[in-house]
Amino acid sequence: MNIVACVKQVPDTEALIKVKPDGSGIDEGGIKWVMNPYDEYGVEEALRLKEAKGGEVTIVSVGPARAMETIRTALAMGAEKGVHVSDPLLDNTDAYTTAAALAAVIKGLNPDIIFCGQRAIDDDSGQVGSILAAILGIPQVTIVTKLEMADGKIKAIKPIEGAQLVIESTLPCVITTQKGLNEPRYASLPGIMKAKKKPVDVKNAAALGIATEPKAKVAKMTPPPDRAPGKIIAGDDPAAKAAELVRLLREEAKVI
């Protein structure tokens, strides 16, 4: 079975995010880059599927040169090979172009199943998996927390408000993965060492024959406004302070 897991390199969840003064993006200095946590569930599920059914897991990532570390991380977990779409023209591109690049790579891999994280924690767009399925013209099941495969079909569970859906789909299909699907493994040391020697194809946009002009652009990035400082009601008389509190809640905060 040919299994594909798509990964994106994102800043660590604890990293200090500073918006560049010109609002064109974030200042990448001092940032620790990690694999998008939702993608980790995808890689783990791909590996489990391979271990149960046999086959090969290919990691595909679109990103700058540093994204290679993330591909290696997935290879250390146990994937067989990787494809790295690396092209300055694709840096910080939109979801459509990313999906188009992924699709161009994946078409050639003849996959049975493709995993994507349900969204990336950096831009939170949550579109790549869906667009990828659309470009490839295959079904998709999004935000999956349980997956079974039998008789050439998959059965996936997707939680929705107050219920869960059990969705069956034919293969090939795209699965976008959600927390709860599995516990991603910790790479073993021999895995880390072997990963250094596993094959990773590096391709640029021209080689894939895709358009690099994004359809959507981040026009401006601004940090969230600073929160107004809290107010301390001064005074010695508790009754007067309570009255003032009520007045402020009513007139300024308008909550009562």
Binding site: D12, E14, V34, R185, Y186, A187, L189
Partner: peptide, 20 residues
């Protein structure tokens, strides 16, 4: 190092040490 089989709490701790 070999089996990568150990408690999830400790896995999280190690990831934290790796990343931060």
């Amino acid at each position: 190092l070999m089996d990568a089989e150990f408690s999830p709490e400790l896995q999280l701790t190690y990831r934290n040490m790796e990343n931060n």
